[in-house]
Design a protein around this nucleic acid. Structure first.
Lengths: 130, 130
DNA sequence: TTATTTGCAAAAACTTTGCTGATAA
DNA sequence: TTATCAGCAAAGTTTTTGCAAATAA
C-alpha cells in the first residue's frame, strides 16, 4: 500500500486482509475477533487505530451507517449500502440499481454540498418473511 | 398527543416543546440542557427515554446521521438532511430540492427494501469559506 | 387504583488516549 | 536511526437499565 506515512506492519496487513476477505462490513469488534485468530496478542485498540488510519488514507471505507457501531468496508470506491432493520446486517447496493441525483444542487439550505450518503433499509434474505 | 400508551407527563411535554421550538436537530444532551432550564430536576435518562419513546410513536424523528451522537427532529414527516462536515450541524433539505427515485426497486441484493435514508454532506454557511 | 414514568445511580457499550517498549524503512 | 506503531490499561463518551417513589388517567 504505502499510502501517506503508513508503515505496513504485520498487524495492519492482517487487518486489511481480513477486512478484504469478507463482504459483511464488519464492525471493529467483529474484525478484532477474526484478526485475533491469526494474531492472538493483538489488541482491540490496534484494530480501532488501524481502521481509522486506513479509512483516512482512503484504503478502506468507514461506513457511517445507522445503528450503534460503525462498520468498515474493504472497498473504498463510493457505493451505497442497504441495512437490515431486523438484524443490522449491511450489504452493498449494486452500483447500477439506483439513479441518484446526477445533478445534485451545489447549494442546499446555504450549505455548500460536497456529497451525499444514501443508505437503504429493509429486511435481509434471512429476516424477510414473505 | 396521546399516542400509543404514552401518558402526557410534564417532562414529556416540555421535552417535546423544546424540541419543536428549534430547527437545530439537537442531540439528547443538547435538549437536556434546554429542558433543564425549565425543569431543573429532570434527569438525562428521562430525556433519553422520552426521545426514544416519542420516536417510536412517530411523534418525532430520530435521525441516524453520521457522527457520534444521534440527533432528533420535532418534525416526523419524512425529509432529508444535510450535515456540515466541519462542525456537525444538521439542517433540513427543502423537500423539493432533490429527486430521489420514487420507484425504488422492491428488492436489492436479496433484501426487501422498505425505505432509504439520504444524508447530504457539505459545509454550512458558517464553515464554508468561498 | 394501577400501569407508566421519574430521578438517581450504576452499568453497559463503544471508542479514544497515554505511555513505554518494539519495529519498519 | 528514528518516526511510527503496538500492546496494555485506563479513561472518555454516549446510551441503557434497575429500582423505589411518584403520578397520570
Amino acid at each position: 500500500l504505502q499510502v501517506n506515512k503508513l508503515r505496513m506492519t504485520h498487524q495492519r496487513q492482517v487487518i486489511l486482509e481480513e477486512l478484504r476477505a469478507v463482504t459483511s462490513h464488519p464492525t471493529a469488534d467483529n474484525l478484532f475477533g477474526k484478526v485475533r485468530q491469526r494474531l492472538p496478542k493483538i489488541s482491540l485498540a490496534t484494530v480501532y487505530r488501524n481502521l481509522e488510519l486506513l479509512a483516512e488514507s482512503g484504503v478502506i471505507l468507514k461506513l457511517e451507517t445507522s445503528g450503534r457501531q460503525k462498520r468498515f468496508d474493504g472497498n473504498p470506491r463510493r457505493h451505497d449500502h442497504i441495512r437490515c432493520l431486523q438484524c443490522g446486517r449491511v450489504a452493498d447496493v449494486p452500483m447500477d440499481v439506483i439513479g441518484m441525483p446526477d445533478e445534485t444542487p451545489p447549494d442546499i439550505a446555504g450549505f455548500k454540498v460536497l456529497g451525499y450518503r444514501l443508505e437503504f433499509e429493509g429486511l435481509c434474505p434471512d429476516c424477510r418473511d414473505d
